[in-house]
Every structure is written in C-alpha cells, then in structure tokens.
Write a protein that binds this DNA or RNA. Structure first.
Length: 201
DNA sequence: GCTGCGATTGACT
DNA sequence: GTCAATCGCAGCT
C-alpha cells in the first residue's frame, strides 16, 4: 500500500507511478476497485493556468492546499463529479485528476451505477464516469484515502507510461505547453478524448 | 448581487 | 459530428 509520504511529491513526478495502482472504495453496497490507467497532473499555483487553484486558495480548492493523500472532489457542468488525489507537501497544491481506470473488482456494482455504459470498458473511462463507478459522492471531498472507506494499493509491476497534452483544459493551460497527462498505452479503458466540446479554434 | 463559464457526458442528427 | 443540460464558483458591477 502506498503511504502518505509516497504521495508527498510533485504531481508530475508522481503521476507515472500511480498508473496501474489500485483504488478501492467501499460502501454498504459493496466494494469497487479500479486500476488507474489515465491521470492528469495539476500544479495549483503560479505556473499552471489550468489548475483550479491557479488563482490561490478558495473555499473550493482549500483541500488541494492541505495534506497529501486526501481526495479533492469537485462538481462541474452542473451534473458531474470528478475526483483528484491531492499530492505534494502542503503548499504547492498539486493534485492528480483520475481520468480513467479499469474496474478490476465490483464490476456488477459499478455497472449498476452506470446503466448507460454499453461495455465494461466504459464503466470508468472518463473522470466523471470513474467517480460514478466508484460511487464517490461530492460529499467525500476532503476524505482521507488512507482510511476507510478508501484503500490505495501501488501497482506491483510498473506499466508502460505515455504522456501528452492534457485533455479538456482550455486556454493557456491546454496544449503542448503542459504535457501532464499520463496513461498506459494500449489500454482499452484509455480513450483518445475529443477536444472540449465548447472550445473553438 | 449578477453573469459567465467550466479538469464532461450523453443524446440526437 | 454536433449540441444541450445544469449549478457552483469566481470575478466584476
């Protein structure tokens, strides 16, 4: 199991190591475990205009500035929840957005939470889908990943890692300037995401 | 206090 | 491929 010290590092350094890690969320309905296949790194302050914490700490982003190993869950587009793991020592507000994963345990439960998923690989392919499949509500923003109902297990074998531009980050934070998206090449649960639906060339 | 927009998804043409 | 849904936050008046 990863410990908190292992997460107390810069998001960009840590991201490749979290690929392949297993994240479990337990509820009264049962457990769901995902193997992380795609993440994005965000640095909260200064240099990273794509980060929610770019303009400094707000009530919303306070969790990102706190202790590593906590969950930063946020609500967006009026209907979706996305989940981050806070990393780095307190201060820089680095975080890793969990973009996609493969359900390795609790597939039936995950499928019941995501009735619109056509195939199993769609269950956690996408940040909001992953949060939904794991059953993580917005209310668990700030929760500690190193205590119930969460568990985080490092990958036993380091997978191949690819990196590239982040997805869905508009404006100066997007594009090749910040190639902080990391994924496991060839994994079917990692999609080539379309550009942001509202963006425009 | 008011307005615009977002680290997206799912439905429809 | 294109587009609406939907609401909290951040920034401005």
């Amino acid at each position: 199991m990863l410990d908190r010290a292992a997460l107390s590092r810069d998001a960009v350094e840590l991201a490749p190591e979290l690929l392949g890690a297993l994240l479990t969320h337990s509820t009264s309905e049962g457990d769901v475990t995902v193997r992380l296949t795609e993440v994005e790194a965000y640095r909260g302050t200064g240099e990273d205009p794509g980060s929610h914490a770019h303009r400094g700490m707000t009530p919303r982003t306070a969790v990102m500035f706190g202790e590593p190993g906590h969950l930063y869950a946020y609500f967006t587009y009026g209907m979706h929840t996305c989940v981050n793991i806070v990393c780095s020592p307190a201060g820089p507000a680095s975080a890793l957005l969990l973009r996609a994963g493969e359900i390795v345990d609790g597939v039936e439960l995950a499928r019941s939470r995501r009735p619109s998923a056509v195939s199993d690989r769609d269950l956690a392919r996408g940040p909001a889908r992953l949060a939904s499949a794991l059953g993580i509500p917005l209310a668990e923003n700030g929760a500690d990943l190193f205590s119930e109902p969460f568990a985080l297990l490092a990958s036993d074998a380091a997978p191949d890692v690819a990196s590239g531009p982040r997805v869905g980050v508009s404006g100066a934070g997007g594009g090749a300037a910040y190639p902080w998206r990391f994924w496991i090449p060839g994994d079917p649960t990692v999609s080539v995401y379309r550009r942001h639906a509202r963006s425009h060339d």
